Amino acid sequence: MAYVRKAFKHASRDKQLLMIFLPCLLFYIIFRYGPLYGLIIAFKDYNVFQGILGSEWVGFKHFIKFFDSREFLQLFRNTFLLGFLSLVFSFPFPILLAILLNEVRSVKFKKSIQTASYLPTFLSVVIISSMMIDFLSPTQGLINKGLMLFGFESKYFLIDSGWFRPIYVLSEIWTNTGYEAILYLAAIAGINPTIYEAARVDGAGRFRMMWNVTIPGILPTVLIMFILKTGSMIRVGYEKVLLLYNPMTYNVADVFSTFVYRKGLLESNYSYGAAVGMFEAVIAMVMLLFAHLISKRLGGRGLW
């Protein structure tokens, strides 16, 4: 009862903050937790006329079918590699950009770089993908025009399976670096200035202060972002993959989410698609917990 009274006391004290938080809470209840009820169809042969509860219960039939299919290993490999390469190559860029911007003394130059790097955040995935397709066009694309200028032949990058993963990773770096750098700049701004002053008095140069003050100061933020990135690594966003891939690159580009889209929506195999999507979500949760444990062991910090 003491905990209940304490909770009501805090709620009464912070009611204005709770009212601000209410729309966010409602969003998650309606659009995130509410649809979890539909996961039941992963264990049923769902029929739209019989409904979720009226459809026949089949247990793990769809999961077993997926694990036995020839697509399973290919999808797992493609999803893991795209997520892993995106994490390895795109994760350090915002940190590096934030640290370098913190060292820039020209305010105008600093704001110009921040604005230019942040602009892709305002563009939708469709626009970003369309720009990538235009840049890589074999006839009018800027990349191929540059290659032909130096005497090379034009290349249709988007139908070459060997180029899909580099293109996807580069687009992730371009899209996310500016936004994530702001988070690290905010963390840098929270470092006590007296620490820099003490380091300067001790004779530390700018590089030494960056290495011994700035990086340790933003390490908690880096660890939290690393955990969140690792948790979403397996959940490769299907929108960009769906817009960039084609049958010629299915062998390296087809991931769990695009497979769910094709099977669940295009082929109306709802139960099978739900089973694959649920498996993807479970793997993502396991990776999130694993990253949390590793972070707690190495840095003493985690999500909780």
Results as ranks from 00 to 15, higher is better:
Y196W: 01
D134T: 15
Q50A: 15
P220K: 06
V104G: 06
N251H: 12
S137A: 09
L101N: 10
S161V: 03
K145I: 04
N47A: 14
F135R: 03
F290T: 08
Y261I: 03
S171D: 06
T121L: 04
N176G: 14
I64K: 11
P94R: 02
D68P: 00
I64L: 03
S161F: 00
G54F: 11
L82D: 02
L147I: 08
F290Y: 07
D45S: 14
F67E: 00
G237Q: 11
G264M: 08
K145E: 01
A7E: 10
A253R: 04
E180Y: 13
I227V: 09
L219I: 13
E56Q: 15
W211T: 06
L123P: 07
I188L: 11
L219M: 15
S232T: 12
P92M: 02
M233W: 01
F63Y: 06
I167Q: 02
N176I: 10
A11P: 07
M285H: 07
I41G: 07
V88A: 05
P35D: 00
L288H: 00
I40W: 05
S86P: 03
I143A: 03
L266F: 11
S90D: 01
T139E: 11
N212Y: 09
Y3D: 11
M233E: 00
L26V: 14
Y272A: 11
N269P: 05
F135I: 12
L97R: 03
I128S: 03
G146S: 07
T249D: 02
G59W: 09
G51A: 06
M225R: 11
V48N: 14
E172K: 10
S271R: 05
I188N: 00
F256C: 06
I173P: 05
I20F: 13
L39S: 11
F135M: 15
T79W: 03
Y3N: 07
E56Y: 13
F76G: 00
S106A: 14
L266H: 08
Y46E: 10
V222C: 05
S129N: 08
P120W: 07
A253Y: 01
I215M: 09
G146W: 04
I99N: 06
I52Y: 05
P94S: 07
G34Y: 11
V169D: 07
L265I: 12
K44G: 02
A281T: 09
D254Q: 12
L100D: 05
V48C: 04
S161N: 08
K9H: 12
L85T: 11
